[in-house]
Design a protein around this nucleic acid. Structure first.
Length: 221
DNA sequence: AGCCAGGCTACCG
DNA sequence: CGGTAGCATGGC
C-alpha cells in the first residue's frame, strides 16, 4: 500500500538529505540572519517557473551589484533591477514583484508574515507564500508544486475518487497536512525530495526504469 | 531545435 | 468558480 509516510522513507533512503534551501549550499533548519531570510524570499520569487540554475545567476548578479537586500531593492529602479535578474526569465514581471515584496517586507518590521498577507502581495501566489513560510520562516506548511501534483497523481494518491491532477492546491496541501506530523524539517526535506524524484524519474514523460516508487505506483498497473 | 523549468496575473466564459 | 495566454532566459 502506498501511504505517504512510506513514500517519504523510500525517497529519503534513495536520495538522502537534500539540504534545501540552498544558500551557498548551507541550509540548516532555517535562515539565521535577516539577510539570509530575505534572500530566501527573493529566491522563492525568482524561482517561479524557472530552473534553480538560472535563479542562482540572478542572485549572483544581485549580490555583485549589492542589490540583494531589502533596502537596496527598495531604492533600485525597476529597469536596473530587471537587467540584473535577466537570467531568471520573466524579468520585467519579476523585477516588479521583487520591488513589491521589498516594500511588504519593510512593513513587517521583523514580524512573521501571515499567509493571507503574503497572498495579498502582488506576485506572491500560494506556492511562493508557502515556500517563504517554510523555507524562510521555518513554519510547518507543506509546499505544493507541479512536481508534487504530478507524482501524487501518478501514484494515485490525494483523493481516492479524484486524480491529483484535478485536485486544487489546497486539497493537495490538506492531504499532506492530514497524514504527516507538523514538522518544518520534515516538510522541507519531503518537498525537496519530491522535486529531486520528479527531475530524475517522474518527468513529464515518465522514466519509470528503476524508479524507487514503482511498487507503490498506480501508473504502472 | 525543441522542450522544459521549484508560477502568477489578468481576463475570459 | 475553472481554463488559459502571456511572461522569457538558459540548459539539456
Amino acid at each position: 500500500m502506498a501511504d505517504i509516510q512510506k513514500i517519504y522513507k523510500i525517497l529519503l533512503n534513495k536520495y538522502s538529505r537534500q539540504g534545501w534551501w540552498p544558500i551557498a549550499g548551507k541550509y540548516s533548519g532555517g535562515p539565521r540572519t535577516e539577510a539570509e531570510r530575505f534572500e530566501v524570499c527573493i529566491g522563492a520569487i525568482l524561482a517561479q517557473n524557472t530552473s534553480w540554475k538560472n535563479v542562482e545567476k540572478a542572485l549572483e548578479n544581485l549580490r555583485r551589484a549589492k542589490a540583494l537586500s531589502r533596502k537596496a531593492l527598495e531604492k533600485i529602479s525597476v529597469a536596473k533591477l530587471a537587467r540584473l535578474i535577466k537570467p531568471a526569465g520573466y524579468y520585467n514581471q519579476k523585477a516588479k514583484k521583487l520591488k513589491e515584496f521589498a516594500r511588504f517586507y519593510q512593513e513587517l518590521r521583523g514580524k512573521e508574515p501571515e499567509r493571507e498577507k503574503l497572498l495579498n502581495v502582488w506576485g506572491v501566489g500560494p506556492e511562493t507564500a508557502d515556500s517563504i513560510l517554510l523555507y524562510a520562516y521555518n513554519k510547518p506548511i507543506f509546499v505544493v508544486d507541479a512536481y508534487t501534483r504530478r507524482i501524487l497523481s501518478r501514484l494515485g494518491l490525494c483523493k481516492e475518487a479524484k486524480e491529483a491532477e484535478k485536485c486544487s492546491y489546497a486539497e493537495i496541501q490538506k492531504f499532506f497536512h492530514a497524514k504527516l506530523p507538523r514538522n518544518a524539517k520534515l516538510f522541507n526535506e519531503f518537498h525537496a525530495l519530491l522535486v529531486e524524484h520528479a527531475k530524475r524519474h517522474c518527468k513529464k514523460k515518465a522514466d519509470c526504469g528503476c524508479c524507487c516508487l514503482a511498487k507503490s505506483c498506480k501508473n504502472l498497473k
